[in-house]
Amino acid sequence: MYPAPRLLPAVSNHAGHAMIYLVLDAVTTAAILFVITSGLLIIFGVMKIINFAHAGFLTVGGYVALVATDLEINPWLGFPLALIVGVALGIVIERLILRYLYDRPLDAILATWGLGIIMIQLVTIYFGREVQFTDRPISGAVDIIGAVYSEYRLWMIAFALAFAAAMWALQHGTRLGLQTRAVIMNEPLARSLGINSVKVRLITFAFGAGLACLAGALIVPLSSLNPNLGIPWLVSAFMLVLVAGNSFASLGLACVVLGTAQVVISTYTNPVIGNLTLPVLGALLLRIRPKGFALE
């Protein structure tokens, strides 16, 4: 009644390719981690607060992809839309709430944590709790040096490189980047030189929030969209920021090392242990070398 399905894949997939797959898994995992963590790192770098609302921003970004689907626009346009929504949300939140908490870091933790809960609840109320489906820009697999691999995961490498390039260009190629680096190094001194650190903070938070929302939209095609979209990534993202300090180069290094460790351990033992790799190795690393992957 049904045509017999092919039992063996048409493309050769021999064990000799295991190494290629391992490398691809490791590189794409590192890329995903980098994309997820960038927004958190940029805020931590300048403001010295860990943005506990990060999962909320990821979720909001994911739902921007859903709105793009509902509006029937090209799914690629959902990505810049998520960035814009994130920046706008970041500006509002910084001006209304965070601005008053810079001298009270513990309160800022509680405030951002609460904010994350509020954002996720608002998304839940409006869009519902259940899994939703969005149009995807890309689906399916491609053949790469004899290995069949998820095309979208390969795109994540390009996204991560674009994130890194944008960050480097901003920090080193613009006046704002220079001021930001000055604020990171010594805020009182920067202020005494006439740098408006309030403005730097506003722009930084807005930019970090925008990147987090964009990251949320970027991971939707890999997972299933529901209000808890961002939560499983949170522990990994926090750990990576702690070991990376405030430099994007360190973050890249941390993502590659810890991402590879996670993939190797998942592949050769089992994924349950693999999932513990990142937090455990991160904690050990901080114990041995408190600066983590920070280069300076």
């Binding site: 993939v263 994924p271 693999g274």
Partner: peptide
């Protein structure tokens, strides 16, 4: 779990 890549590999 959100990432099944290693299982698929």
């Amino acid at each position: 779990a959100t990432d099944w890549t290693t299982v698929i590999t």
